[in-house]
Computed example of a mutant assay.
Amino acid sequence: MFAVYAAEPNADAPLDSLTVGERPAPDVPDGWVAVNVSAASLNMHDIWTLRGVGIKPDQFPMILGCDGAGTLPDGTEVVLHSVIGDPGWDGDETLDPKRTLLTEKHQGTFAETVVVPARNAVPKPAGLTAAQASVMGTAWLTAYRMLFTKSGLKPGQTMLVQGASGGVSTALVQLGRAAGMRVWVTGRTEEKRAVAERLGAHATFPSGERLPERVDAVFETVGDATWSHSMRALKPGGVIVVSGSTSGPNPGADLQRLFFLQLRVIGSTMGTRQELVDLLRFVENAGISPEIGLELPMDQAAEGFRAMLDGDTSGKIVFTQ
């Protein structure tokens, strides 16, 4: 079958490992289902897979793609939940020490067909296209959990999103605006800040700029480059919710500010199947149109990977069959 895959790990030149070609059709174990992929979205996790991060060398070749949307053999339209837990785990699957994601142990969604546990194929709302639904399972689910499960924010409070144009950031802007938050965003360029404003941000600021007032919560995916600003931006008792560290994982903690102002730092990773179900319903009910910055046929996937590495797009990059 047709697939986009990592032929081998390549830490220094990840795109040299990117291959568009044929792979064997997958077997379907008991309790799993085959999904004919209609659309799938690109995540930074796919770049890490190409680099060999979080995956053993003997697991290559690995079909890329953490999430997507498609149809079951009976025609049912579904959205894929990419967190695959241990069958014996009872509870929040993001806390399962044996959990994995598509492309870490199991082949991914950048293919004609992907095989997942039956519970990981979630019915697609009629109000979302396949391309829109394909962005939900990783970036949007991460944003939903950060905002609604972890932050404790209430409508009317002020949230700051660090970084204006990435997949999680644009999802946070759109979700926060729809939920009645006052949404502030930082961005490195006028173009990136303009994207956030178009998506509903109430105000945008250059990265690191002093804000007019302190905020109730900061949403962090950047890490080292923005951490000091995030700490300074918080009201006493405020919270930073962290789901990534793209600029570096070891920022100065500023412990004196942390304890003196009784700030909270909360980690957040992906989301549960139920959170994905709730997210899909919320997006449909609120009439949100997820930001898709680039949509390409899957056989032109290399162009999308280059755009992600160069930071040339806003929102999500989607591949369609």
Rank of each mutant, 00 (worst) to 15 (best):
A7Y: 12
P14I: 05
L15P: 08
S17T: 03
V20S: 09
V20D: 06
G21M: 11
E22T: 08
P26Q: 08
D27W: 12
P29T: 07
P29K: 09
W32D: 00
V33Y: 07
A34F: 14
N36L: 09
N36H: 14
S38D: 04
S38C: 02
A39T: 05
A40C: 12
L42H: 00
N43K: 09
M44W: 09
T49S: 03
G54D: 00
G54N: 08
D58R: 08
C66T: 05
T71H: 13
L72G: 02
P73I: 00
T76R: 15
V78T: 02
V78D: 04
I84W: 02
G88I: 01
G88E: 14
W89A: 01
G91F: 11
T94F: 11
D96T: 02
D96A: 10
K98V: 06
Q107D: 11
T109K: 15
V114Q: 04
N120W: 11
A121D: 09
A121E: 08
A121P: 14
K124R: 15
A130S: 13
A130F: 13
Q132L: 11
A133L: 14
G137E: 05
F148M: 12
T149I: 06
P155D: 06
G156T: 08
G166D: 06
L172E: 01
L172T: 00
V173E: 05
R177G: 04
R182F: 07
R182A: 00
V183I: 10
T189W: 11
E191A: 14
R193Q: 10
R193S: 05
A196R: 06
G200D: 00
H202L: 05
F205R: 05
F205S: 04
F205H: 05
P206F: 07
A217R: 02
F219N: 02
D224H: 15
T226E: 03
T226R: 04
M231E: 00
M231Q: 03
R232A: 02
A233E: 01
L234Y: 06
G237I: 01
V241Y: 01
S245H: 13
N250G: 09
D254G: 09
D254A: 10
R257P: 06
F259T: 06
F259I: 03
R264L: 12
L276V: 05
L279G: 01
N285K: 15
N285T: 07
G287D: 02
I288V: 07
S289H: 11
P290K: 03
P290D: 01
E291A: 07
G293R: 04
E295R: 15
Q300N: 12
A301W: 07
A302E: 15
M308C: 13
L309P: 14
S314V: 03
S314R: 03
I317L: 12
I317C: 09
T320K: 13
